[in-house]
Design a protein around this nucleic acid. Sequence first.
DNA 1: GGAGTCTATGTCAAATACGACATAGCTGGC
DNA 2: GCCAGCTATGTCGTATTTGACATAGACTCC
Lengths: 105, 105
Amino acid sequence: MKASKLKRLQAAGWKAGSAAEFLGLSGQEAALVDLKLALVTAVRATRRKRGISQIDLAQRMRSSQSRIAKIEAGDASVSLDLIVRALIAAGASQKDVQRAFIAIG
Amino acid sequence: MKASKLKRLQAAGWKAGSAAEFLGLSGQEAALVDLKLALVTAVRATRRKRGISQIDLAQRMRSSQSRIAKIEAGDASVSLDLIVRALIAAGASQKDVQRAFIAIG
DNA sequence: GGAGTCTATGTCAAATACGACATAGCTGGC
DNA sequence: GCCAGCTATGTCGTATTTGACATAGACTCC
């Protein structure tokens, strides 16, 4: 069958080079974390630049103050979606976003 | 109490200018959708450029072929997190990622 | 020192996103 | 034709993420 073959392939993928895959994965995860951190910094910077409070920003994106606080704190329970939504809602300009990436580049 | 006042503020925020807020929100959502679309396109382009299949990519990021298909199809059940993870796993350069994100302007 | 504002942190039920799986369609080589 | 690999779509149980709420700390102004 198809599915069983697919599964065998996946199982094989696990066995062969699992250490390398782990390293690769952790590298990918690190890149994602870096990206999140940069964006989170941009959220706080943009919000402050616009002089709006966490409550204000929460209202703008139909979220709550506590979520904004968690976003800015880099809380693990915050998705990239939410971070970017906050960035957009805060009114980040293209330059703001670009600046966020400079740390990564 | 604090909380009740906060709640009143949020309720007021709802009432006053709800139409404008709705328009604002839908604009934000549109921006997010545009961003996702740009990234999704980059995922497929990068994957094809590297000559890897959806199964390959799925293994690289410990996901499944069906999820990759959904990512590339722009399925609503796919988060920005997963899209970016796919982009990174596909081997997109940081410049590629940046380029896609800059669309927020 | 009390009141107001802003931010941080923890909890929780409900909503959403996840991987896995099944299965179908499509294409190209045999 | 048939088979193989690749992709698309739907479902499902589980895991993660969410907004809301409570509450506490820091700081300012009266």
